[in-house]
Every structure is written in structure tokens, then in C-alpha cells.
Design a binder for these strands. Structure first.
Length: 638
RNA sequence: GCCAGCGUAGCUCAGACGGCAGAGCAACUGAUUUGUAAUCAGUGGGUCGGGGGUUCGAUUCCCUUCGCUGGCUCCA
């Protein structure tokens, strides 16, 4: 007989005398509500199955409810096991590999004689429903790795055998529901009947362990929720997000197009899209000049020799395009730094000149693999708002903080949610360990000084230095890298950049590569989805459209149109012989912020009636009044 | 690059065992002069992504190529 002392937050502790005590039994002592919605529990901070025995005499216990984040994770993981079981029953000979829960979803990778197709999913879902209805309990068993390897080898589950071997543990845990046993750390929901709502969403190919040299597996994605309503809501949200997809919206709003005959990953900007770019670029130039940057411009193609000198040829060649001119090899630039290096090196620099901040809206070409191209998000030609800051080592911290502030201010204008990550040295890289350490520390220190939260991304740095990445969250919950701040101790050395210090000697400056919006293309893609195409007035390629009611109104309408043009408002005219409702509909679909209605009433009063994009009318006012109003809005970047 | 799916009029989509390719919207022409999300009528519009093959005959079947979409370790 043992004595267990169990604690649960907010309740008086309970002493239990028993031979053994399961997590579920412990929870029952506290009469916690909704035990049927509890999927697992945390015992002394560690996730456990409800059926697990409590080994500790003193235990702090906390139920994990199905609708909580952790609960959903466990639910989805368990649902992936149910899916694997269903697939094994339906497709004999299939081999199972791994099947984790991921954000909002789960997947399981299979190796089968043919890849799974979307039309296999309904049958799998049906079989899963049977398994759920059968309410099979999940049971956990720990055995030695040897036994587990034998167990899976006998079933021909080679992938599982490999996993266990790589784990290198003495013992592993297995989970069984019905006739299906899987290697798994757990925990799991008590039984399959506890799955309230699930749906299989799509299939995809995936390399075994993400390695393209290893077999291509067939992945099935699905999701599960604590109730049917949440699942429906999630699927609806996905549908809504699809409607914002910039690949569809962009061409419909006449922003850009792509062409098979031009090539993959190349964007053609139409008048409205080119205007949007221009607005952003103008905004950027102003903001940069304001912060002590200088505008520069380098050529598109530079001799291959120079790319060899910089290390790009060695490290980045497979992403570069090359061409030949007069038997000389040239590389089309994938980055803008080289010309900036030469600008710096073009004359002797004093410490008094530093920092130098060179800014270029630089168009670069990168040979991205065909399969990763994606609308405006991933293209082969794009323009970066690129700058290189060359400074003394003791200016570095301040410069990085300056860029972090710049990023914060700009993201604030667009009201974007974002996360910060620090990426460290990758396998393929140049430079000494000491320099990497120094550079990484400089980034960490600046983040700490600014009190910013960040994650560490091991091995994800650029080949020449560590970096801070700013990842925006888009409408579909995907993350996109935009701003990035990269330290570089190697380029100044390769180009022998120097400055004369106070002491009269030559010193080596350090360099920061950084972008704020990142690629203009990608940023516009994110903006389209963020605003669902309805850009705020300051960004809208067309800010107002003048609509006449009848031909009688054209003379006055033309005066209004001209007044707006004169005031630098981006205005269009729709004087067609159509009904007002028809013109409003078209303007509405093109998401213009303002429609200026001009009928007899407006002509008689020498004014306009603005109709806002949200359907609200403002009262009749004269053209000057409207110009004041919209100018104020533009100035406030609304 | 690899796996899967997709590609029919400017757009959204039908279609057929392998037997002359369809609708709505848009465009164009005309009528209409219109007050807050589609006025009416008529007309034109397609190498069914490109190339090759099988066939009497291919948009449909096969191969190939281009393009697009979803994915390609958020570690049992």
C-alpha cells in the first residue's frame, strides 16, 4: 500500500492510499468538471495518458482538455494513428512511416506501390469512421528496442525499424488500438471514440525524412477538432482565405499577370500593379533618405570573376544565371552587395565617414527550383529594398538596433503580425568560427537591448553570416520571410575594405546586409491577401472614380476629374452611358476607395457626393472639400 | 528537381464510347439617358496549353514538353 499526495491547482491536496493510482483515478478524486472532455493530463509538468500509473508519491496534476491547444495536438496525433490503421486495412502491403500533429492539422506518410490520390480519401475517411465508432482503446506498452525492432521487422515495417535504430534508446513505447500498433511517444486520447470531428484534406508527395535522395513517400493530410462546429469553421476559413489568394485576385484587379511564353517565376506588371509598386518604392526611398541612407545603383550583370572573389560562385552558383559577352563570363546578380562594396572601396574612408548606408531598389535573378515557385511569393526575378551598412565594429550594435526600429515602424504602418528569428551558421558557409560567434552575438545583443522576443533557427543563416529574420503571417496562416538583417564579416575582408581610424591606422569595417519589405513582389502578394485587394487609400492604385448619372452631367464631372488630377489624386472617369448601379458595381468590384457620384443634384450645387467602398455615402460637398478629405487620409496612410 | 492534381472563348465553368465544341459574364453593334452592386436586343469569338504517336478519325487514349496548384522532417 502506497500513499499518494496529489495536488491540483485551486483545490485542496488529496491523500490517496492505494496499491496503484492511475492518472484518471487521481483526477476523479478532485471531481473536476467535464472529465469526458479530458484527453490526457500533465503530471509534474509532463504529458501522460489518463491510463498511466502515477509513480511519484507527490504529484502535481493538471487535466488537458480536448479543446485546449495541447488537447487538440494530442487529438490530431491520435487521429493520425486512426488514419494509419484505416490505410493499412484498406491497402494491404502499405508501409507506415511517421505521422505527427502539426499546426492545425496532422499528416501521415506512407510507402505504397502507388501514390495515394485525392479520390482515395473518401474511402479512408469511411474506414476511419468505423474505427471511431468501434471506440477502440489506445493502450501503451514499453518494450526494449530489440523487441520493438523484431516486432516491426516481422511486419516488414522497415521505416519503423530505422526510426528505432536511430533513436538509440534502450526502451521505446508502442501504442495499440485494435489490431494496429505504432511506435509512438504519446500521449494519446483514451480511445478512438473520443474523436469528435475530423476531415482528410489533401495528399502530397514527401521524401522520407525530407531528404530528396531517399524514397518519395505518399503523405495524407487531415485535421481534427474538438467539435463538428469548429471543424466546419476551420474549413470555412480556409475557403475564405482562398478567395483572398493573390494569384487569383492580382490579375482580376489588373495588377499583374504571368505568361507561359515569358517563363515561370516572371511577373508582368500592369498599370495598376506598376502604380502600386511605384507607391511602395517612393515610400521606401523617402523613409530611407530620412534615416541617413544614400541611394545607389549597380548593374544587373557583373563579371563571373567578381562573383568568384565574393564567394558567391562557390556557394551560390546553382541559384545563379550566367551569360557570356565577348568571351567573358558574366553572372546575373542574385544579390546587390558587390557594386556596393566597390562604391565603398572607390576611395579612402575615414572613421568619421562611417557608418555608410547604401540603399538600392535592386532587381535580382535567382534560379529557384521549379516546384517552389508560387505566385508573387516565390519568383525568379524580383526587386529588393536592399541596403548595406558599413560601419566600425563598435557601431554595429547601434546600427542593428536602428534597423530593428525601422522594421517595427514600417510593419506598424501595415499593421502586420510578425515573428522574429535569429538564424545561425549553416553547414555550407565561409568565415572563421570566431567571426560567426561575434556576429551572432551582435544580433542577439541588439534583440536583447530592444527587449524583443525571438526564436533561434539553428543552421538557417546565410552562407556569409548569421541573420535576424522577420516572418509575416499571411491570411492563410503561412509565414513569409520579409525583412532580414544579416551580419557579414567576410565580404569586407574579401574586398579588403578599410577605414582610417582615430589612430591613423587602417581598420576593417563590418557590414550589415538588410532589407525591410524584402522583395517588393512578395510584399505586394502579402498586401493583396492582407487587405483582400481593398488597399487603404494611400496605397490604392486608383483612389477615386468619377461616375456620372446621365450625359447631362459630363461637363461638371470633367471639371471635378480635372481638379482631382491637378491635386495629384489617382482618379479615373466613368462617363459611360450606363445605369449608375452598373457603374457602382464595377467600381465596387475593382475595390476603389471612393466613388464620386455626379448627377443633376451635384451639378446644381457645384459638388460631388462621395460613396465610400463600404457602401456609405458622405454628404454632398464641393470638389475642394473632397480633396482636403482624401489628402488627409493619404497623409495619415489610411 | 521530385510526387500528385489541373490546363476547353478574355473570365467562371459545362461537355463527349474516340465522330461538326456549349452556357453565363465580358467584348463589339444598336436601342436606352438612367440616382447607389448587373437595362434590353443583336453580332463576332476556340488549332480544347504546345509537339509527337495510336486510329479511317484525337479536345477525348498513349508519350513528351510548357505552365499552374498543393506538398517535399514544425522529428516515433
Amino acid at each position: 500500500m502506497k500513499t499518494f499526495s496529489i495536488h491540483l491547482k485551486g483545490k485542496p491536496p488529496v491523500q490517496v492510499q492505494a496499491e496503484s493510482l492511475s492518472v484518471r483515478e487521481a483526477l476523479e478524486r478532485f471531481e473536476v468538471g467535464g472529465l469526458d472532455r479530458v484527453v490526457a493530463a500533465k503530471v509534474n509538468g509532463e504529458q501522460r495518458d489518463l491510463s498511466a500509473e502515477i509513480a511519484e508519491e507527490e504529484a502535481e496534476i493538471k487535466p488537458v482538455y480536448i479543446q485546449s491547444e495541447e488537447g487538440l495536438h494530442i487529438l490530431r496525433h491520435s487521429t493520425s494513428h486512426v488514419m494509419a490503421m484505416a490505410v493499412k486495412e484498406l491497402f494491404p502491403g502499405v508501409k507506415v512511416t511517421i505521422g505527427p500533429a502539426i499546426e492545425n492539422a496532422f499528416y501521415y506518410d506512407f510507402d505504397y506501390e502507388r501514390p495515394f490520390r485525392e479520390d482515395d480519401l473518401p474511402a479512408i475517411e469511411e474506414k476511419m469512421k468505423e474505427i471511431v465508432n468501434a471506440d477502440l482503446p489506445f493502450s501503451r506498452k514499453e518494450i526494449t528496442s530489440q523487441e520493438a525492432i523484431r516486432f516491426f521487422r516481422d511486419q516488414g515495417e522497415d521505416y519503423k525499424v530505422e526510426l528505432i535504430q536511430d533513436l538509440g534508446a534502450d526502451r521505446v513505447s508502442l501504442y495499440t488500438q485494435g489490431g494496429f500498433t505504432d511506435l509512438c511517444r504519446g500521449p494519446h486520447i483514451p480511445s478512438t471514440g473520443m474523436i469528435p470531428a475530423f476531415h482528410l484534406t489533401h495528399v502530397a508527395g514527401a521524401y522520407w525524412r525530407g531528404d530528396e535522395k531517399r524514397p518519395m513517400l505518399s503523405r495524407i493530410y487531415g485535421t481534427a477538432f474538438a467539435d463538428q462546429k469548429s471543424l466546419k469553421k476551420y474549413l470555412y476559413r480556409l475557403e475564405e482565405a482562398k478567395k483572398r489568394n493573390h494569384v487569383k485576385l492580382g490579375p482580376r484587379l489588373e495588377l499583374f499577370s504571368t505568361h507561359e511564353e515569358i517563363g515561370a517565376g516572371m511577373i508582368v506588371w500592369h498599370p495598376k500593379g506598376a502604380m502600386l509598386r511605384h507607391i511602395l518604392e517612393e515610400f521606401e526611398i523617402r523613409e530611407h533618405l530620412h534615416r541617413g541612407y544614400e541611394l545607389v545603383k549597380g548593374p544587373e550583370i557583373l563579371k563571373t570573376e567578381l562573383w568568384k572573389k565574393s564567394g558567391h560562385f562557390e556557394n551560390y552558383r546553382e541559384n545563379m544565371y550566367f551569360t557570356e559577352i565577348d568571351k567573358q563570363s558574366y553572372g546575373i546578380k542574385p544579390m546587390n552587395c558587390l557594386a556596393h562594396m566597390l562604391i565603398y572601396a572607390s576611395k579612402l574612408r575615414s572613421y568619421r565617414d562611417l557608418p555608410k548606408r547604401y540603399f538600392e531598389l535592386g532587381t535580382v535573378h535567382r534560379h529557384e527550383r521549379s516546384g517552389v515557385l508560387n505566385g508573387l511569393f516565390r519568383v525568379r526575378e524580383f526587386t529588393q529594398d536592399d541596403a548595406h551598412i558599413i560601419c566600425t565594429p563598435d557601431q554595429l550594435n547601434g546600427e542593428i538596433k536602428g534597423v530593428l526600429n525601422f522594421v517595427q515602424e514600417v510593419m506598424g504602418i501595415f499593421a502586420f503580425p510578425y515573428d522574429l528569428e535569429i538564424s545561425t551558421r549553416p553547414e555550407k558557409s565561409i568565415g572563421s568560427d570566431a567571426d560567426w560567434e561575434l556576429a551572432t552575438q551582435a544580433l542577439v545583443q541588439a534583440m536583447e537591448d530592444e527587449g524583443l522576443a525571438y526564436e533561434i533557427n539553428e543552421g538557417d543563416g546565410a552562407f556569409y553570416g548569421p541573420k535576424i529574420d522577420v516572418k509575416l503571417n499571411d491570411a492563410l496562416g503561412r509565414k513569409w520571410q520579409c525583412a532580414t538583417i544579416q551580419c557579414d564579416f567576410t565580404l569586407p575582408e574579401k574586398f579588403d575594405l578599410t577605414y582610417i581610424g582615430k589612430d591613423g591606422d587602417r581598420h576593417r569595417p563590418v557590414m550589415v546586409h538588410r532589407v525591410i519589405l524584402g522583395a517588393i513582389e512578395r510584399f505586394i502578394g502579402i498586401l493583396i491577401e492582407h487587405y483582400a485587394g481593398a488597399f487603404p487609400t494611400w496605397l490604392a492604385p486608383v483612389q477615386a472614380v468619377v461616375l456620372t448619372v446621365t450625359d447631362r452631367n459630363i461637363t461638371h464631372a470633367r471639371e471635378v476629374y480635372q481638379a482631382l488630377l491637378d491635386a495629384d489624386i489617382r482618379v479615373e472617369a466613368d462617363f459611360r452611358n450606363e445605369k449608375l448601379g452598373f457603374k457602382i458595381r464595377e467600381a465596387q468590384l475593382s475595390k476603389v476607395p471612393y466613388m464620386l457620384i455626379i448627377g443633376d443634384r451635384e451639378c446644381d450645387n457645384n459638388g460631388v457626393t462621395p460613396r465610400q467602398r463600404n457602401g456609405q455615402n458622405l454628404s454632398l460637398m464641393n470638389a475642394g472639400g473632397f480633396i482636403d478629405l482624401i489628402r488627409q487620409e493619404i497623409q495619415q496612410r489610411r
